[in-house]
């Protein structure tokens, strides 16, 4: 911000203070009702889900079981929302004749540290994505971490050269998610049905949990490519 605005960025006016008091009073009035509330045991969803999830889906991580297995349709919607955001940003920021300039004169430390940090970033992201059904994390977190590697490269002065390949991969993986979900209708009897049978003796190993790891790898690639393309659009600048 310019210096004129910089001096007076104080957000204090009598109206704001009044609203703060009103909302604070409301919050403290509602607070005992929330903290003292005990729901009936049979109405709680969380506990029964925690009990059922590992046995039904074959994934020890109950959060992943809920996100990808019980609520796989919601995740498909979430991924499409991300795609919409990336597409809208590309429409607004990436139109016309643009040039992607590399970051001007990357720091010596950044330029050398990228070779040191990059493999670790990539490996951690891949590990978190692939082990989403066993340990905390999954496609979203791992995808963001692996995309962080690419953002580091962009910061260190590199450019996204094969933007079309990136977009193709993104679309391909999104269609594969839908394809796996639809083929569940034929092979398992329901949308997002489990094509790959769950082996109870393989519980807790890497190759278990049916289609959950497959879907999470798709989600990881899709999230990662979308974040790279969003950041690339931010880096573009319109030629004046």
């Amino acid at each position: 911000m310019s210096s004129k605005l910089g001096k007076k960025r104080l957000f204090i006016s009598p109206m704001h203070l009044l609203w703060a008091i009103v909302f604070g009073g409301l919050f403290f009035a509602i607070l005992p009702a929330i903290s003292g509330h005990e729901s009936i045991r049979s109405e709680r969803v969380g506990e029964s889900l925690l009990v059922q999830a590992p046995a039904q889906s074959g994934a020890p991580n109950a959060v992943t079981a809920v996100v990808v297995w019980f609520r796989g349709l919601d995740t498909l919607g979430e991924v499409s929302v991300l795609f919409l955001v990336a597409a809208a940003l590309g429409m607004i920021l990436g139109r016309g004749k643009n040039s992607t300039e590399p970051e001007s004169k990357p720091n010596e430390i950044v330029a050398h540290a990228k070779t040191l940090v990059l493999p670790h970033f990539m490996l951690t992201g891949l590990y978190i994505t692939i082990h989403g059904h066993l340990t905390p994390g999954g496609g979203f977190q791992g995808g963001v971490m692996a995309a962080g590697m690419a953002l580091l490269l962009i910061l260190a002065g590199d450019r996204v050269k094969h933007l079309h390949a990136l977009h193709f991969l993104e679309g391909l993986v999104g269609s594969l998610y839908a394809l796996v979900a639809i083929s569940g209708i034929w092979f398992a009897g329901s949308f997002l049905g489990n094509l790959i049978p769950i082996k109870t003796e393989a519980f807790g190993t890497l190759f278990s949990a049916g289609i959950i790891p497959v879907l999470y790898i798709f989600i990881g690639i899709k999230v990662g490519t979308e974040i790279i393309s969003i950041y690339d659009n931010f880096q573009r600048r319109e030629e004046a």
Partner: peptide
């Protein structure tokens, strides 16, 4: 799980996008 998401998105990505 939530902590990982918050660390990756809330701390890393948002700060990076804001700063750039």
């Amino acid at each position: 799980d939530v902590a990982l998401t918050e660390a990756a998105v809330g701390t890393g990505l948002v700060t990076l996008v804001f700063l750039s």
